[in-house]
Design a protein around this nucleic acid. Structure first.
Lengths: 287, 287
DNA sequence: TCGGATTACGTGCACCGTAATGATC
DNA sequence: GATCATTACGGTGCACGTAATCCGA
């Protein structure tokens, strides 16, 4: 069998056309490369080069060999990539969530209970979360509908309620609470990347009045600089996104209230047992 | 990059399940293999084995690695195969011929003019010969029809005429010559592997009367032991397949006479120049 | 006690770099 | 003389084998 380092050297020579340039790239001396190419020919038992005094170049066989050398090298690199990524997957908990807030609660729990594991999270719609769980793209998902699938283990998590934050002098600021319908005709700011909430907002607010801000900085500046109302939530406000100089009113519509569920594959229930019990405690603390 | 010898060792371990058995197959010692597997894990930076005292086995990552190792090894072997076979092709003149006789003339010419080259020959129908020439399966072909293709260089070669050899007491033995029609009702022997002649014989002789002998020995024995007529040719007889105690009569039908043509790709004309001139001389000598 | 893995240790080969040589422009 | 390949020579790392050790059936 031909060793990889010989094929790497052949491939480098094929790219550069001279032993000197290839040796330079490979960080070895020309003599070393010259010997390697001889060795390669010897091991294959065929001639790969035209040699005329101080000029060397690939012959037809050599060109073919270089072509196939690339394939072997690609296979070798592919093996390394696949093994490394598989191994990393084993050391990673991937969490899919329908909206960011529950992740804020889950992240510290995972960091504490899944020691040594990397944790990644991603926002996606509920259906993508469930299919991702089954295809093992995610090991845990946070939904806003309890799944009916028997292959999944599911546990109720926290609740969240949508608010609207308004300047104190806004016509609606005197109210106790609001409904989406009350907002008609008002432009209103909303953060991008809020998962399923975005779909909900789009259902209730006309597109021309819904000012989506994908950058957190832009959102912050607009809130400060303008007197526009913006969407908020009880959980956001808990986390410091309250604005004492403004008025925050809860939305009374049913679908402005979400209950979150955390789920895994039934086969992983044991693995995440301590996570689920920590989640239960967190729910009790919030009451 | 991971070297091939490490992947071979991993693959051998994956096949055998113990270091001892794998080391045995690889003709190395267990310690050497044990160290190699450690080295492999170290180079990849991941764990590939469950180790419990005097028991070692692949973990999930290891199984995946072994699977991909096989692919790399296959790519490596494939490279060697392709290069070797390409190289051998460069050192081989493949001749395709429509029937064996012309090859007898061409073979000594090629052996003399294409020094150091291996020579292979194969019998095939004219259309396959021409497509084989274009696909470089053959470098030279011998046809019995001059091709009209401009990409081919073609030169007239020898002629051959079909004969029938009969016992002296055969009813037809008194004739000066024959036509296929005269043979009606007679069983007649014919060698297999005579290329296009076989198609011709089948056109003129009823299947039940055409006794095809694929083995040269069987043909020889049947000729000796029976008084059956058999197909022969002027060129065969020149070569010692004459039977002095029997009568050989030429067939007068037009298609019992063949003119051979030798052809190559136009781009190869120079390469085979000396072969074509030797062929011209051979034709002149035969007149 | 045996099968099987690992550790310890010494050795030789194979690959490497430096220097010199050869060859062409 | 500059560029580039090859030959010569000496050094060293590393993969190997042998021997010893460890561990479980």
């Amino acid at each position: 069998m031909i060793e990889i380092y010989l094929l790497e050297q052949l491939a480098a020579f094929a790219r550069h056309g001279t032993l000197l340039a290839a040796a330079d790239e490979l960080h070895i001396s020309q003599p070393a490369l010259s010997r390697s190419m001889k060795k390669l020919e010897e091991q294959l038992g065929v001639s790969l080069f035209h040699r005329e005094n101080s000029k060397i170049s690939l012959n037809e066989t050599g060109k073919l060999a270089a072509e196939y050398a690339e394939k072997v090298l690609a296979a070798d690199r592919d093996m390394i990539d696949r093994v490394l990524s598989f191994d990393r997957q084993l050391r990673t908990v991937s969490v899919g969530t329908c909206t960011p807030f529950p992740m804020w609660e889950v992240m510290p729990i995972l960091q504490e209970r899944m020691i040594g594991m990397a944790i990644t999270s991603e926002i996606a719609p509920d259906d993508r979360l469930i299919s991702g769980l089954k295809s093992k793209l995610y090991q845990l998902v946070i939904l806003h509908q309890p799944p009916e699938d028997k292959e999944l283990f599911c546990q109720r998590f926290l609740e969240e309620r949508l608010y609207v934050t308004l300047p104190q002098n806004h016509p609606l600021a005197k109210r106790e609470s609001l409904r989406f319908a009350d907002l008609a005709g008002n432009s209103i700011l909303v953060s991008g990347n809020i998962g399923f909430w975005m779909e909900l907002c789009k259902r209730h607010i006309a597109p021309s009045h819904l000012l989506v801000q994908n950058s957190v900085e832009a959102m912050g500046e607009l809130v400060e600089a303008s007197s526009l109302p913006f969407f908020n939530s009880d959980r956001m406000m808990e986390r410091g996104y309250d604005h004492p100089e403004r008025v925050s009113l809860p939305l009374e519509d049913d679908d402005a209230r979400a209950v979150y569920y955390i789920a895994c594959l039934s086969q992983d229930k044991k693995r995440f047992g301590s996570v689920f019990s920590a989640v239960r405690e967190a729910v009790l603390r919030k009451r």
